[in-house]
């Protein structure tokens, strides 16, 4: 069963994704402008974030995104069992992101670095927090898709395609947040 081909119209969620990335780009510019006013504070604070954990989380999201990117063509070729396996894999790898994020937040709170410590940490918690909300929505969507496509009900491919695009957005946002927040200390 060929549900769709790769040159077909993209789901409407693409407008939302574009608007969402655009608002994050705007937040990044605000962050940079505020950073320029107190460069020393930002650079010093940036030395307290765990770059290794951020790096691992980047690799996790890239891998998870790659698996989701394989689920879409599988379903398009009618290989639903294969598509579900890829989604399950993406969910399993993606779940590690939350574990590492939890460790990271725990370390920050233990070290007394809180949202009101200084403006850098305010941005740190807001950016990573907003991203985490996106992540939770994405994981929920993928879980829903995993069950929805099982019976190949009407619109199952639209759900899978929309969920996959959303998941790539979570990946894209992190790819920009990571250097912005974590590569401050190197100066």
């Amino acid at each position: 069963m060929v549900a769709d081909d790769r040159h077909a119209k993209l789901p409407g969620i693409i407008v939302f994704i574009l608007a969402d990335i655009a608002s994050f780009v705007l937040f990044f510019i605000v962050f940079m402008a505020e950073r320029a006013k107190q460069l020393d504070v930002f650079v010093q604070s940036g030395q307290h974030v765990n770059v290794t954990l951020g790096l691992i989380n980047t690799l996790i999201l890239i891998t998870s995104g790659c698996l989701v990117a394989l689920a879409v063509p599988s379903a398009r070729n009618g290989q639903i069992i294969l598509a579900r396996r890829f989604i399950l894999g993406a969910l399993a790898v993606g779940a590690l992101f939350a574990v590492i994020k939890g460790v990271e937040y725990y370390q920050k709170i233990q070290a007394g670095l809180l949202v009101d410590t200084n403006l850098y940490f305010t941005f740190y918690y807001i950016f990573t927090g907003l991203h985490f909300v996106h992540y939770v929505v994405g994981m929920t969507l993928l879980t829903l898709v995993y069950f929805k496509i099982k019976h190949q009900s009407s619109g199952h491919f639209l759900w899978l395609h929309s969920g996959a695009l959303y998941w790539h957005m979570v990946d894209l946002l992190w790819i920009f947040i990571f250097p912005l927040l974590y590569f401050q200390g190197a100066r």
Binding site: G12, I13, V15, F16, A19, D20, S23, E34, V115, D116, L119, T122, I126
Partner: peptide, 26 residues
């Protein structure tokens, strides 16, 4: 559909307003 997605995006942006209860400037 693009109007609907714009509308949903605005809805998702609203929770940021809650932050005014924490920040006095910025």
């Amino acid at each position: 559909h693009w109007v609907s997605w714009y509308v949903i995006w605005v809805g998702c942006m609203l929770p940021l307003l809650g932050l005014i209860s924490v920040f006095k400037d910025g």
